Computed example of a mutant assay.
Amino acid sequence: MSEEKDAFYLVKKGDVVGIYKSLSDIQVHLASSVGSLEIYKGCSLSKKAEEHLALHGIKEAAYSISAADVSEGLFGRIVACPYQQPSHSGGKASDINLPSKVLRGADQLDNNLNVVGPSLFSSNSDRRQIFNAAQSDLSTCLSCIIEFDGAAKGNPGPAGAGAVLRAEDGSKVCRLREGVGSSTNNVAEYRALILGLKHATKRGYKHIRVQGDSLLVCNQMKGSWKTKNANMAFLCNEAKELTSKFLSFQINHVLREYNSEADVQANLAVNLRAGQVEEDCQC
Rank of each mutant, 00 (worst) to 15 (best):
K245W: 01
W225N: 06
L235D: 06
S244A: 11
G204C: 08
S214K: 07
K226T: 08
L215H: 14
A239Q: 06
N219S: 09
G204I: 08
K222E: 13
L242V: 07
C218M: 14
Q211Y: 12
M221C: 13
L216P: 14
L215N: 14
Q211E: 12
E241F: 02
N237D: 13
E241V: 03
K228V: 04
K228F: 01
H207M: 04
T243M: 06
E241C: 05
S244V: 03
C218F: 09
I208F: 01
S214G: 13
K222C: 09
N229Q: 02
L216D: 11
E241M: 07
I208E: 00
N229K: 00
G212V: 13
L242N: 09
A233N: 02
A233P: 03
L215P: 07
K240A: 07
S224K: 12
N237H: 12
V217D: 10
L247K: 06
Y205N: 02
R203A: 07
T243P: 13
N229H: 04
Y205Q: 01
C236W: 03
M232D: 03
C236Y: 02
C218K: 13
S248N: 08
F234V: 00
Q250V: 02
L235I: 08
F249S: 10
M221G: 10
K240T: 09
G204Y: 09
W225K: 03
K240L: 15
M232P: 02
V217A: 15
L235T: 08
V210M: 10
I251H: 11
K240S: 11
E241H: 04
T243H: 04
L235C: 05
F246C: 11
R209M: 05
T227Q: 09
K228D: 03
S214W: 12
V210W: 00
W225S: 03
V217G: 09
T227C: 13
F249M: 07
M232L: 14
K228E: 06
K226Q: 04
K240Q: 13
D213F: 12
M232V: 15
S214Q: 10
N229C: 01
V217I: 14
N231A: 02
S224C: 06
D213I: 08
I251S: 14
N219R: 14
S248M: 03
L215D: 14
T227N: 13
Q220R: 11
C236G: 01
Y205G: 01
N229I: 04
G223Q: 09
Q250G: 13
K226I: 02
N237A: 11
K245I: 07
S244I: 00
W225R: 06
E238C: 06
R203C: 10
C218G: 09
L215Q: 15
L216V: 15
I208S: 00
N219P: 12
L235R: 04
T227R: 05
M232I: 15
Q211C: 13
K226F: 02
K228Y: 01
F234T: 08
N237I: 02
I251A: 15
S244N: 09
E238D: 13
F234H: 10
N229L: 01
G212S: 11
A233G: 00
A230H: 03
